[in-house]
């Protein structure tokens, strides 16, 4: 598979599923089995619990995570004790999760493991740094967007996106919805100056004027009809530390002083804007940029939905690939 070589160019990879049962775990398994563990140090973890034998929500079969010998992995204490392989502990973190602390170990035999890694964004970054210290060349993060996890997969350098019939059972809708997410993942990075200015702000909405002075925007509530603040005509950049939602972008779009503004968000996972509205904003002269960006390497599809509905894999791959201008793979079919 071509994208394996692509993955090895980066020091971190996240595998992101657009919905449960879109084949993310299959994709992870596929990648893990093809990693050169004998020549490179590779560590894998998950944000949120993963590796359940049966999906907790839909009760469908889920593939177990089987690690090859030589791979490093991070999981919670509780899941470490349930491991079905021989492994050597290399790190125990200070961070406590509901399943105990996060421990990292090296697999001395191949075997099965339940993955459940750092639950928070800072915890995830700390783990990645710790792995770098231990000489790990590549960290792989198993992450989902639909999960309630504050750890964002966008901290990784590269990304693979898993989509499929579970996300939408209509090929055209699925292609459109996936293309929208791909567009968000590919949003450009904000300038370095802006990244430094906004990087440390973890809440609130902020704006920069034409001289680069930073001000907090205090009164953006969902109740107010319009955005109005002193010096608005000089505003060039808005930073939304939390979620960017429809109502906010709609107010910005309709404001004659702001419609050409650049909106900066932390990463694509913070954007909850409908595709139509997003298009209108960009068309009207607005721009959206991000503080953290991952290079999207490939998209994988699972044409089977948990309800049993199956889409035509070839048509799906072709249509999607055309829409997003990236390689698309059905991993089960291409096995």
């Amino acid at each position: 598979m071509p994208f394996i070589n692509e993955i090895l160019k980066y020091s971190s990879l996240s595998i992101v599923g657009l919905e449960k049962n879109t084949g993310k775990t299959e994709c992870l398994k596929y990648v893990l089995n093809r990693m050169p563990v004998n020549t490179r140090r590779i560590a894998v973890t998950s944000i949120g619990i993963d590796g359940e034998t049966v999906d907790q929500v839909t009760r469908t079969q889920k593939p177990e995570i089987v690690l090859p010998q030589g791979m490093y992995f991070a999981t919670s204490e509780a899941h470490y004790k349930l491991r079905r392989l021989v492994s050597e502990l290399v790190d125990v973190s200070d961070e406590n999760t509901s399943l105990g602390r996060v421990v990292t170990a090296k697999a001395l035999t191949a075997g099965k493991i339940l993955l459940s890694g750092p639950p928070s964004a800072t915890g995830l970054i700390r783990w990645m740094n710790q792995m770098r210290r231990l000489g790990v060349d590549l960290t792989i993060i198993d992450g989902a967007l639909s999960r309630l996890s504050s750890a964002s997969p966008a901290v990784s350098e590269s990304m693979i996106l898993a989509t499929g019939a579970a996300y939408s059972a209509n090929i055209n809708t699925l292609v459109q919805k996936t293309a929208h997410v791909v567009q968000l993942i590919n949003l450009p990075l904000a300038d370095e100056g802006l990244r430094n200015t906004f990087g440390a702000l973890d809440k609130g909405t902020w704006w920069l004027d034409d001289e680069g002075t930073l001000n907090e925007l205090s009164s953006v509530t969902s109740l107010s009809q319009n955005i109005r603040f002193q010096g608005m005509e000089r505003c060039r950049t808005l930073f939304v530390a939390g979620a960017l939602v429809d109502s906010f972008i709609e107010k910005v779009r309709k404001n004659k002083d702001l419609k050409h503004v650049e909106i900066v968000v932390r990463d694509f996972t913070r954007i909850f804007v409908s595709p139509q509205l997003f298009r209108l904003f960009v068309k009207g002269g607005g721009r959206v940029t991000v503080l953290h960006k991952s290079k999207l390497i490939a998209v994988t599809v699972n044409p089977t939905s948990p309800s049993g509905y199956v889409l035509d894999s070839d048509i799906l791959c072709e249509k999607l690939s055309e829409a997003i201008e990236l390689p698309v793979y059905d991993l089960l079919k291409n096995k």
């Binding site: 392989l85 021989v86 035999t109």
Partner: peptide, 19 residues
């Protein structure tokens, strides 16, 4: 036991119990 595990992955679960 661990040598056996690596040679016979199909017996791993059983061998792990013993180990």
């Amino acid at each position: 036991l661990r040598v056996q595990m690596r040679q016979h992955p199909e017996l791993q679960d059983e061998l792990l119990l013993e180990a």
